[in-house]
């Protein structure tokens, strides 16, 4: 009876002890498990954000790389066209001379810019030069005598130039032209635009564009085209045209035709040069951004791996310390 009682007590104690130890284990493990879960959650959040970032950077890198390839192949064909078109303006420049300092009462500025962005600083350069040229002409006229009669007009080509110049020179914009390179630049197209320019009845037209020098270099350039009257005046002042003999009643008509043709050819060349510069500038800009995206991706990968490693180490430490706490 007594033995039975003792056995029963022992069994009771044992079960109670087991329960006690179980509850102890639960108590000690509870915070650890919670901490582990918390650590896992934070790891998930931080690495997830980095992972998403890495994915987006990698995608952008792919896009910039593709854009670079496209720009490079477009540049190659544009370069051929540009170099071919130089032959058409060179004789006219030799004949009539480049007269950037020519004065007139009606000055037209034609900044040639691109329609699309992501092509480096070429559009900003053209706009900067336009502002400077307008200011220089204004100052020149103010120093001279015909300050009151002077009129400066802008015919902006390209969307990017329009959005930049309409901010501060809105009132002097005469017209805007865009999408000239959408299909392709042709001489009839340049002629059609030149005829629109003729409607301004300019004295001097200054075409501002980026001259294509090489794939990594574009030079902002101002090409000046004079009206027939201004040409006549420049001939009197001893320009290059005076070396040729132009006689008879056709002289005025001939000069008029020449001036028109010069405007169209200069515009044609300038459009091609600027298009080529745009492509080459876009190519180098995209090359740089691809490089930068690669660098960024490297940094992000490093951060990602470091946080992953750190959280794994923390977990291991926690597990081991938990286990040693149990064992001890």
């Amino acid at each position: 009876m007594l033995r039975n009682g003792a056995q029963a007590l022992g069994a009771l104690l044992r079960t109670q002890g087991a329960a006690l130890t179980e509850s102890l284990v639960q108590q000690t493990q509870g915070p650890v498990v919670e901490a582990l879960a918390a650590a896992g959650a934070t790891r998930g959040v931080s690495t997830l954000a980095v992972k998403q970032r890495m994915k987006s950077v990698a995608n952008i890198q792919k896009i910039t790389k593709a854009m670079k390839m496209v720009a490079a192949s477009k540049m190659r064909s544009a370069q051929v066209n540009t170099e071919n078109s130089r032959g058409i303006v060179a004789p006219l420049v030799r004949l009539l001379g480049d007269l950037p300092a020519a004065e007139g009462t009606k000055n037209v500025f034609v900044p040639i810019t691109s329609d699309k962005g992501l092509c480096g600083g070429i559009n900003t350069t053209v706009c900067k030069y336009t502002r400077a040229a307008v200011k220089a002409v204004q100052d020149g006229a103010a120093a001279g005598e015909g300050a009151a009669a002077q009129e400066n007009m802008l015919v902006v080509m390209g969307e990017k130039g329009r959005s930049q110049l309409q901010r501060d020179m809105r009132n002097s914009i005469f017209a805007t032209i865009a999408d000239t390179t959408k299909v392709r630049v042709t001489f009839p197209e340049a002629s059609a635009i030149a005829e629109e320019l003729l409607k301004t009845e300019y004295d001097t037209t200054r075409i501002l564009y980026n001259r294509f020098v090489s794939a990594i270099s574009q030079k902002p350039t101002i090409a000046t085209v004079l009206s027939p009257d201004a040409l006549e005046r420049s001939a009197e002042a001893g320009a290059a045209i005076d070396a040729y003999e132009l006689e008879g009643p056709d002289r005025a008509e001939l000069l008029m035709d020449l001036a028109e043709f010069q405007l169209a050819t200069t515009l044609y060349n300038a459009m091609l040069e600027n298009n080529c510069s745009e492509q080459s500038s876009r190519m180098s800009a995209m090359e740089n951004s691809t490089k930068n995206a690669g660098e960024m991706l490297g940094k992000l990968t490093l951060t990602y791996n470091r946080t992953r490693q750190a959280s794994i180490t923390t977990e291991l430490i926690e597990i081991i310390s938990g286990a040693t706490a149990l064992a001890g």
Binding site: T176, A178, D179, K182, E189
Partner: peptide
Amino acid sequence: KVRETIYFRQSLWKDGVPQKQVIT
């Protein structure tokens, strides 16, 4: 024939406001 193509958009401006857009 492709050298005959003409395509551009233009709009004349008046008092700092663009007028109607014309596509050639």
